[in-house]
């Protein structure tokens, strides 16, 4: 269960692992936004770049594909919806089971873009230490006077830490209730409530214990922070990424 999410850090020493987090976040945002405007030619280029990135960062490609299988199901749905409901092929055509080529084209395009953005996110999360992401978030939030950057960053990292615990807990609760015959109850609302309430209670208990444990280890907002440092390869990468985004938007 703990393995459920594909989105986690894979230790390594590749170029992508060593880039400065801030540059990685910037690049991620830039490419994600510009890929929404991109068309097949530039999307193909981007796809190649992404596969290259996966290759050089030694990510376990097969297991990533396996863990993304639910996402592919989602993509299929999006594709079908797009293919049918694109303006050029109104619902009326459906009766004669005609789906216009425009629909298929636009469906495929949307799915392609989404897939690339998800792969990008995956590469980012897989090659970046969670603690570094936290520090970078703090760094980006510092200029805003009314946002408590440190606190936001700590909360973020605690949430990331808590998700697997909550999932484990949920499964345990489901199993316990199944073994006592909850499936005989046909009302899904009843079953949902019976699941959610104990789950919430346990989660709050865990959060409480975690707070005490943090206190016992002297937690306060004044603490050592790792300094972020950028070097030439970061700037070169960013330059490359900007060129790529311009290409994506202007094809």
């Amino acid at each position: 269960m703990a393995e459920l999410t594909a989105f986690h850090f894979h230790p390594g020493a590749s170029l992508l692992h060593t880039l400065d987090v801030r540059f990685k976040i910037l690049s991620f945002v830039l490419i994600s936004i510009s890929s929404l405007k991109a068309y097949p030619l530039s999307l193909s280029i981007l796809t190649l770049v992404i596969f290259y990135a996966i290759l050089i960062s030694y990510l376990p490609f097969k297991s990533i594909l396996k863990e993304l299988r639910y996402f592919f199901v989602l993509l299929v749905f999006i594709f079908i919806a797009r293919a049918i409901f694109t303006p050029e092929s109104p619902v009326a055509d459906l009766k004669q089971s005609v789906v216009a080529w425009q629909g298929i084209y636009s469906g495929a395009l949307v799915c392609w873009r989404l897939l690339l953005v998800v792969l990008l996110g995956l590469i980012f999360v897989s090659t970046t230490k969670p603690s570094d992401i936290r520090i970078a978030v703090e760094w980006f939030l510092t200029p805003f006077p009314f946002i408590p950057g440190k606190r936001v960053a700590t909360m973020m990292s605690l949430i990331m830490r808590f998700v697997p615990l909550i999932l484990d807990q949920a499964r345990e609760t489901v199993d316990a209730q199944r073994s006592r015959g909850v499936e005989n109850r046909k009302n899904p609302v009843y079953r949902l409530i019976k699941l959610i309430i104990p789950l919430m209670i346990r989660t709050f208990e865990k959060a409480d214990k975690l707070a005490v444990a943090m206190e016992a280890r002297c937690y306060s907002e004044k603490r050592t922070n790792k300094a972020l440092s950028s070097n030439r390869s970061d700037w070169i990468t960013l330059f490359g990424i900007i060129c790529l985004s311009i290409l994506l938007v202007n094809n």
């Binding site: 850090f9 230490k129 969670p130 603690s131 990292s157 605690l158 990331m160 830490r161 615990l165 865990k206 959060a207 214990k209 975690l210 005490v212 444990a213 943090m214 016992a216 280890r217």
Partner: peptide, 14 residues
Amino acid sequence: MVFQDADSQIVGET
């Protein structure tokens, strides 16, 4: 202090 519940005293992601 090492607490009874090992899981809920882990703070870091690694």
